[in-house]
Amino acid sequence: MDDVHALARRLVETPSHEDETAAGDEIEDWLREHTDADVLRDDAPNGGNIIARKGSGDSVALVGHHDVVPPADEQVDDGEYVVYEEDGRLYGRGAADMKGAVAAAMVAFRDADPDCELVFCSFVGEEQGGIGVRHHLERHDAPDYAVVAEGSTSYTTDGVTDVVVAHKGRRGSTIYAQGVAAHASEPASGENAIYRASDAVDVVRELDFPAVEVMGERVEGSVAVTGIDGGSAWNVIPDTCEVTVDERTVPGERADLDRVTSVPGVSWSVDQDLPPMECTSDAFADAVLDAAADAQSGAPRHVVKPHATDAGWLADEGTACVVCGASEPGEAHTKTESVSLDTLDVCYETYRGLANAWPVRED
């Protein structure tokens, strides 16, 4: 799989935490040179999404993103990303999340001979809340099916690449408590916004965590207060206080945060809502699992992922999605980020195998 390894290294070497143009150039140029596909570079912010298509029929997309979070000091030398191989792993910012899997998807796209419309997508701005995929979906139809190449390796067994059939979303909210300012020597003459916010926090603590089942896998959400900000001076009864809430959402359910408005002077608003995902096609989820099983010696399973991905935005538009990729838990966004080269080979075989096998035809 030298093509996958070499391409992964090229992509990881290309900085893309501030401006994704250069990484997009690498992807676009490679696709134009190595495939006969129709290649589109759109006008999404930060350099544009890269979309390539070949074949006809129902569309199956191999989906990734080429932006990365800012590198740690150890991952940069004289303005260049530090990239190296050691003990069968590729090290560097974005190796796991997720340029390694993007490279595997690109080579699989090149090599596949599909009986469907095969689409390759690499989006910008995934780390900023799905900027690229949202830009694309506002202008184009969503694919019928998609494999989002985010991490699914070592979920059930070390070194085995599983298939995610559901993942949580994230809703970030702010609770606002309004009070009446007063001198702290006469607290009864005011209304303490921090006390009201504290009462609202108590409401949040009592909320039930929503949970659903997807293809036999339990997906359980959570709600947590993660910050509080109020008060202007030690001798002033505060008239405002804000509380931040992190909610991990599940398909079709949300915690009843509106209950905080039962506290006088309290309101709330949503700041960010990254959607959860559930696969809506058993046949597609099983076909990806079969392809993953054929690609490796271990026994992959359908699993649930705790993190939001671009699959949530696609699923919201009707795409039947799974997540299947090389990153292992604990690798993404770290100063020692790396990916197994053998696992990139498994991903390549999985993506190519699925593309050649779909749609599944019954005799």
Rank of each mutant, 00 (worst) to 15 (best):
T14F: 06
A200T: 10
N356C: 07
M106I: 07
P45G: 07
T226K: 01
K54P: 00
M1G: 15
V83L: 05
G298Q: 10
V160F: 07
V201Q: 07
A285K: 04
T157Y: 03
F284D: 04
V63H: 02
I50W: 02
P300Y: 04
D144V: 03
G64Y: 05
T280P: 12
N235V: 07
D286S: 13
S152M: 05
S281K: 04
E253R: 15
D271G: 15
V63P: 11
A315N: 12
V260L: 02
R196Y: 11
V165D: 02
D87Q: 09
Y145A: 01
P329C: 08
V68S: 11
R110W: 02
R134G: 12
E13Y: 09
D158E: 15
C116F: 00
A61S: 14
A188N: 15
T350F: 09
E74P: 10
R248K: 12
R93Y: 05
L137A: 11
T156Q: 10
N356T: 03
D271W: 02
S222D: 10
A37V: 07
K54S: 00
V214W: 08
D229M: 10
K335S: 15
D158Q: 12
A105W: 06
R93P: 10
D229Y: 12
A6S: 14
R248I: 03
G130D: 08
E86T: 08
E362L: 11
A105Q: 04
G230M: 02
G48H: 07
A6K: 15
V165I: 13
P238C: 00
V60E: 00
A200S: 11
V102Q: 01
